[in-house]
Amino acid sequence: MSTPRVWLITGTSSGFGLEMTRCALARGDKVVATLRKPAVLADLAAKHPPSQLLVIKLDVTNPQEIKDAFQQAKAAFGRVDVVFNNAGFIVAGETEAVPEDAARKMFDTNFWGAARVSQEAVRFFRDENSPQGGHLIQTSSSAVFSDWPLMGFYKASKSALEAITDTLSKEVSPAWHIKFTSVEPGAFYTEFINNANLIDQPSAYADPSYPTSSMRQMYKYPETVPLELNDTAKGVQKVFELSRLASPPPRLPLGRDAVKFMSDAAAAHAKVVEEYSSWSEDLAIKK
């Protein structure tokens, strides 16, 4: 593991993407940092030689730019070992009030963009890496296990990404040596939350005692979140450790809040199965 690995990271302008870029570089790996506005990383790029850091313009909603980014990575470093599929954003609001165009725009990045990066990553790991192999790490969210108000469409976008990742991981041949992990962060204090697109509240939900009103207060004042906020730099250190595992888990809850969300969800599902499994015992067609 002494040979530097090559990372391709999407969404490196801030938050997890930026911290993961810094972490991988500090550990001696090489990074292809992609983002829509490369000028944002000018200061970071000035501190690292082109032999270690390549900054590329990439809008993950543009399929050709995805393919170009992988080819530029190959031209610069010869291979890609880890893809940290991180680009995404939040559209938050009461489900009935979120405009379809806003939700679709989020899905174009969080799901379709991430799915296309995933497709190209698998193809690249198999067809262009020599030897074959690589690790696709998806930035998902602990929202897939929680039912926080305002997060319906965001949760749906991340749940869809996890679903397609699960299926993709079962479709590839073990001979290709491709690994998959969906990382599910809890509440991390990053620009990601601060830059969320919060849809105007409809009047029917304006009562301050309603769940969505309380959640809106947390968006406006993150310091009031009734959970411990996690440190992003420490979080990506754990993701880096994950990338070193020979057999990484398919899912990694990140943060004690995320662990609780997953644990509670698993217990709730187990309870339903225990209580209602008998309802399915006599449904089979008799032969």
Rank of each mutant, 00 (worst) to 15 (best):
Y221A: 15
L227G: 08
P202L: 14
T3I: 14
A39V: 01
V144N: 07
N110I: 05
S14F: 03
P38A: 02
F145W: 14
V98G: 05
V122F: 01
G133K: 04
T95Q: 08
V239F: 10
I199P: 08
R123E: 08
D127M: 01
L283D: 12
A97V: 01
F240H: 15
L54K: 14
G133P: 01
H135E: 06
L252I: 06
P250G: 11
D147K: 14
T109M: 00
G113R: 01
T167W: 08
A103M: 02
E223T: 14
T61C: 02
T109N: 02
S140G: 12
K74T: 05
G235R: 04
S141I: 02
K47D: 08
A266G: 07
S203Q: 15
S263P: 04
L25Q: 03
V273F: 15
L136H: 11
F188C: 06
A87M: 08
L161G: 13
S157L: 09
I199Q: 09
D200I: 08
L53D: 04
S203V: 05
T95N: 09
A69D: 04
V55M: 00
T224I: 12
K260M: 10
I199L: 06
T34H: 11
V273M: 15
E184S: 07
A265M: 00
P4I: 11
E275S: 05
A233W: 00
E65M: 06
G113L: 07
S247D: 15
F240N: 10
S214H: 01
Y210I: 02
G186P: 06
D59Q: 08
Q64F: 04
A69S: 10
A121Y: 02
S203D: 15
I164R: 10
K105Y: 07
D166H: 03
A114F: 07
D200N: 14
A268E: 01
P50C: 01
E274Y: 12
L136A: 10
K37H: 14
K179I: 07
L58Y: 06
F89H: 08
K30S: 03
E94K: 03
N197C: 07
V122L: 05
P249G: 13
D68V: 01
Q237N: 08
V80H: 06
V117P: 04
V122C: 03
D231W: 07
G93D: 03
S169T: 06
A143F: 02
S51T: 11
P38H: 00
S173E: 05
D29P: 09
I9P: 03
E274G: 15
L283S: 09
V60P: 02
M262E: 08
V172F: 05
T95W: 02
I193S: 12
K179W: 11
K74P: 03
F124A: 01
T61N: 00
A45M: 03
A204T: 13
M262Q: 13
R244H: 09
P250V: 11
A76F: 04
G78Y: 01
A121L: 04
S130R: 12
G186W: 10
I90C: 03
P208V: 03
S173T: 11
M262K: 14
N86C: 09
A246R: 11
T139P: 01
R244Y: 07
R256W: 11
L252T: 05
K271D: 09
P38T: 04
E275K: 06
Q237D: 07
K37A: 12
H135S: 09
L227P: 14
K67N: 04
